[in-house]
């Protein structure tokens, strides 16, 4: 905690300036078009994910009817950026990283999408805004994990977190970059701002998936005691946004915590976990959730 002032608060700023001013290197053997296009694609898709996140009442860029579905589609484009970077760098470490990334993303997209089905069935909507609004009961504690379907909600929540760790290439699923064997995986050759884009994309995607988990499972902006505020209070958006950010940041912290706790898996272990455990589990949860919601909807 010595560098960068009190608790290192300026470290981030200094890092940003450093990354911005570093030399931008294009390796001589690299594919110039793909090498340059990849960071833009990755960063663009990460930013587009934020379009549908409902931060607070009235604070959302676009309430799409297709909300979460759109977000999943956009998130899947990141994988192509990773492959593009790995191939375009013309470096064997990068290529290994990209291939692992492709295999991992293609495998974990399935449990990721399936784990979202219980809340989608519960709320009957793809729209994150609509789902959040439905969780405002019980004085702001009507979250999906506290609903009558909690026994499906809690496992699906953890499933979602696990799958999104893999989808975002976070430890223990960070094989695409695994620095101990592949230098830095698919972004080995990148420097300066282009490297910063990959770096930022990872954290942006972590935040976006945490925000989705918040909106679907943890009540979004709803917080206990929100009913004490007057109807249409000017405080509500601020406090709501605060609650949303706190929950989402807590989940981001959990992801970072997991990173420093668990060792990296081997690629075959990653695949086994994805196909043999998470996917069947996700299917089972989907069936359980469908049965439960159908039973509840019965007249």
């Amino acid at each position: 905690m010595r560098t960068g002032g009190w608790h290192g608060w300026s470290q981030t700023l200094a890092d940003a300036i450093k990354l911005l001013t570093k030399e931008d290197i294009l390796p001589s053997g690299a594919d110039p078009v793909l090498f340059r296009l990849a960071p833009a694609l990755v960063m663009g898709s990460a930013l587009a994910m934020f379009a549908v996140l409902p931060f607070a009442p009235g604070i959302q860029f676009a309430d799409l009817d297709l909300g979460i579905y759109f977000l999943l589609a956009i998130a899947s484009l990141t994988t192509i950026g990773v492959i593009m970077a790995g191939w375009g760098s013309n470096n064997k470490w990068s290529l290994y990283g990209a291939m692992r990334g492709a295999a991992q993303a293609a495998s974990y997209e399935i449990p990721l999408a399936l784990s979202l089905i219980p809340p989608i069935l519960h709320f009957g909507t793809f729209s994150l805004l609509n789902a959040t609004e439905q969780q405002s009961g019980w004085g702001g504690m009507g979250w999906y994990v506290f609903s009558d379907a909690f026994w499906v909600a809690i496992p699906s929540f953890f499933l979602f977190l696990t799958a999104s760790l893999a989808e975002n290439r976070r430890a223990p699923f960070d094989l695409p970059e695994s620095e101990s064997e592949l230098v830095a995986g698919f972004h080995t050759e990148y420097s300066g701002l282009r490297f910063a884009f990959f770096f930022l994309e990872e954290y942006a995607a972590m935040f976006a998936t945490s925000a989705v988990a918040t909106a679907y499972w943890l009540g979004g902006w709803n917080f206990p005691g929100m009913t004490l505020l007057a109807e249409g209070s000017a405080w509500l958006p601020w406090l709501g946004a605060l609650a949303f950010l706190l929950k989402a940041m807590f989940l981001v912290c959990v992801m970072i915590w997991v990173r420093w706790t668990l060792p990296r898996l081997r690629i075959d272990q990653v695949m086994t976990l994805g196909w043999k455990y998470l996917t069947p589990l996700a299917l089972g949860l989907m069936v359980a959730a469908a049965g439960w919601e159908a039973w509840r909807a019965m007249p």
Partner: peptide
């Protein structure tokens, strides 16, 4: 809109990734 998003999810996010994987 649903078809458009499905197109991105399936073709760009799924099939194309598999193509690329196979090509590599």
């Amino acid at each position: 809109d649903f078809l458009a998003v499905t197109q991105v999810l399936l073709y760009a996010g799924g099939i194309l990734v598999l193509y690329l994987f196979g090509l590599m």
